[in-house]
Nucleic acid binder design. Structure first.
Lengths: 131, 131
DNA sequence: CCACCGGGTGACGTTAACGTAAGCTTGTGA
DNA sequence: TCACAAGCTTACGTTAACGTCACCCGGTGG
């Protein structure tokens, strides 16, 4: 009921984003602020969506993916089905993240091994100089 | 001595890259194939560099960074200093990769938690339907 | 009156690592 | 000789998520 509306600047401060970002999200149809004349006014709904968007970004969802998920919730009905779909998307993302982490771990281990080799080689320089 | 030279296609097959990639690397001054008229010929040296480049990519080095590292080894002298610098660069990369993995791990844990919450919520739907 | 501030609207720039397409040459087998 | 394949060069396209710039508008304090 008491949707206190925020200006773009207040939103930026609250969520630590730039005005450009909010306008950009609006252009991408992720959020739909009201207008007071020219000025954008962001209500509870937009804040909720933005929060989800930023969370999604953290999980590696692309903006377009988030838009689709958010739109699911906009149609308001069939809650269960929506939740299922969202969970499926999330599970796929999760699997991708785990894969990515595994690859990273491999690369880390390999790089460490290379560094060890290099350290040995460097030691031979030291010994050569000590003769 | 016996630099057997490879054509661009042979290189592509050997390293699993496209011709475009090799020409691109050349334009970026990462490799320097000889020319037989128009045709590029890749020798031992270029193969070595390409191998390092692809390794570096795996570790997340940018091409420009790789170029600088490779150039270090081109001047041929002061081996020890070169090795040191390369190791320093590698250590920084390693630290960045570890940081990145930690962040990813956090995000993974968070997403898992969210999924668990969602699963609970979904269960309430099931119970509601069972009444 | 005027500078300034907050906000708004395009439109173009940025970054990385190539992909893609057009059109030219050169070599080769039928 | 002709067509075809492989290479070559040049140049523009792609992707994501904004940043930057130039310019406009309306209200306000001095």
């Amino acid at each position: 009921m008491d949707d206190d509306y925020l200006t773009i600047r207040q939103m930026c401060d609250a969520f630590d984003v730039t005005p450009r970002t909010l306008r950009f999200y609006e252009a991408k149809e992720l959020i739909f602020p009201l207008r007071d004349g020219q000025k954008r006014l962001y209500g509870r709904r937009d804040r909720g969506r933005l929060k989800l968007i930023l969370q999604g970004k953290r999980f590696g969802f692309a903006l377009e993916e988030m838009r689709q998920l958010l739109n699911l919730y906009d149609r308001g009905d069939a809650q269960e089905e929506q939740l299922r779909r969202t969970m499926n998307a999330a599970r796929e993302r999760l699997a991708a993240m785990v894969r990515q982490r595994d690859e990273l771990t491999e690369a880390i281990d390999d790089l460490r091994a290379q560094l060890d080799l290099a350290a040995e080689k460097l030691a031979t320089f030291g010994r050569a100089a000590a003769e």
